[in-house]
């Protein structure tokens, strides 16, 4: 049985997940391993390893979005989808002068407090 009352207190944000049963890696956190169907208990984390999903990655595609949602003060933001060396992919913000698909970047996890409410963890992709 899972006690979800403590789920938010212990659930980490923006990490990679490794299933110890079959070794496959995932992002974001799955509740069931897509390869071997092993369950993940989000409270104890038993049977699963977590790891930092940061570092070198390749930009697959990007956009400069001009119409940002309520709460954002900037005129536009750049967004991208990247692929890490371990094969996992992620979406996040892009801080690059002249983005080009295929370029090598470095992913970092940071806190963003642009939206109302508690700050959240976000990916930022930059040039080395």
């Amino acid at each position: 049985m899972i006690d979800f009352s403590v789920y938010n207190a212990t659930a980490p944000t923006i990490q990679g997940y490794k299933c110890q049963n079959c070794g496959s890696i995932h992002y974001p956190a799955p509740m069931i391993c897509s390869k071997c169907s092993k369950r993940r208990d989000p409270v104890t984390g038993k049977g699963w390893e977590t790891f930092d999903l940061e570092g070198p990655c390749e930009l697959l595609t990007w956009t400069r979005a001009w119409n940002l949602p309520e709460g954002y003060s900037r005129k536009y933001l750049l967004f991208g989808i990247v692929q890490f060396e371990n094969g996992l992919r992620a979406s996040g913000q892009l801080e690059v002068e002249n983005p080009e698909s295929g370029m090598k970047l470095v992913a970092e996890v940071e806190e963003s407090d642009e939206r109302p409410g508690d700050p959240v963890s976000i990916f930022v992709f930059r040039e080395k």
Binding site: T13, I14, Y27, P28, T61, W62, T63, R64, A65, N67, L68, P69, Y72, L77, F79, G80, I81, A90, S91, G92, Q93, S112, E114, R115, V120, S121, I122, F123
Partner: peptide, 16 residues
């Protein structure tokens, strides 16, 4: 966690 919190929107995905 993996999309909305980043500030991503539907038009942003449309663009990418």
């Amino acid at each position: 966690e993996a999309e909305y919190n980043m500030g991503l929107t539907l038009p942003a995905f449309g663009g990418m």
